[in-house]
């Protein structure tokens, strides 16, 4: 059975400066992958390559189809690191923003089933209370939750999220990661998530991917957490990550070490 994402020999450079080199991996259905790595390591670029937002070298397949032939975008939900939505005077309501996640229709009409999907996504992300408010009048955290609803509205099988919790308060962040955990565990949604919240997300994810221009590590969280060789190989950043994972005296990755291997 083909993976949900198959990447082979991905290479990308900005004006001849290499950003990503020789990246190959497969993400299987139901995986919950946390992508970590230093700033400028190419994590966001990798997600953009997977979505066709940047063009590099190498082969990408989504749901078994080459990226340039892939058409079924409803299967994928995407939430960017920074919302490019910066025009202060764009008068669209939160509900209309969520509706933009559905692209089957082109004209201005909205069907009953589409409205139902929008309300369902807003319910999940607890954004229904401000459905009618203008998007730009919302706080950054509320906007982020609306954009998450937009990513979920097409009931995707794959969620690609780029540091989605940065602007959220602790309560919203917990709600957010619980929601992602539920989607993955109960509905089998595959998740690819760039995060620095390794501690919080650790209890849900099944795999870590460490990107620093190349694919330094890709494996289960147990392999990541227990392997002294991995820590040594990854250097100071990984040690910092592992320290962070154990800073409360237990292993938030969910492995059985009890924090002893710190």
């Amino acid at each position: 059975m083909p993976g949900i994402i198959e990447a082979q020999e991905l290479n990308f450079a900005y004006v001849r400066v290499p950003v990503l080199e020789h990246i190959s991996f497969t993400v299987n259905a139901g995986d919950y992958v946390g992508i970590i790595g230093p700033n400028g390591g190419g994590k966001t670029t990798l997600l953009k390559l997977l979505l066709g937002l940047e063009k590099g070298k190498g082969q990408i397949k989504l749901f078994g189809r080459p990226l340039n032939e892939f058409k079924d975008w409803r299967k994928i939900g995407y939430l960017a690191q920074k919302s490019p939505v910066s025009q202060s005077r764009f008068p669209v309501s939160a509900e209309e923003v969520v509706l933009m996640g559905l692209s089957d229709r082109h004209g201005s009409g909205v069907s009953v089933s589409e409205l139902k999907q929008v309300h369902e996504a807003m319910q999940k992300t607890r954004t229904r209370e401000y459905a009618g408010r203008i998007f730009h009048d919302l706080s950054i955290g509320q906007q982020q939750r609306v954009l998450l609803a937009r990513a979920l509205v097409s009931r995707p099988e794959l969620l690609i999220l780029d540091e989605p919790s940065t602007a959220l308060d602790p309560e919203s962040r917990e709600m957010f990661f619980n929601l992602l955990g539920d989607l993955n565990a109960k509905q089998g949604v595959t998740i690819l998530l760039i995060t620095h919240d390794t501690g919080e997300v650790g209890k849900y994810i099944s795999k870590f991917m460490y990107i620093d221009k190349t694919l330094v590590f890709y494996g289960t969280k147990e392999e990541f957490c227990h392997s002294a060789a991995v820590a040594e190989k990854l250097g100071a950043f990984a040690q910092h990550t592992i320290d962070h994972l154990h800073n409360h005296g237990h292993c938030p990755l969910g492995c059985s070490c009890g924090g002893e291997h710190k």
Partner: peptide, 24 residues
């Protein structure tokens, strides 16, 4: 154009990269 492509236009205008991930 507005009548037939209203959603595509608003979506592409509001958030171009996201619109591309919708196949627009």
């Amino acid at each position: 154009g507005l009548f037939f492509f209203y959603r595509d236009l608003t979506s592409a205008c509001f958030d171009e990269p996201f619109a591309r991930t919708r196949g627009i």
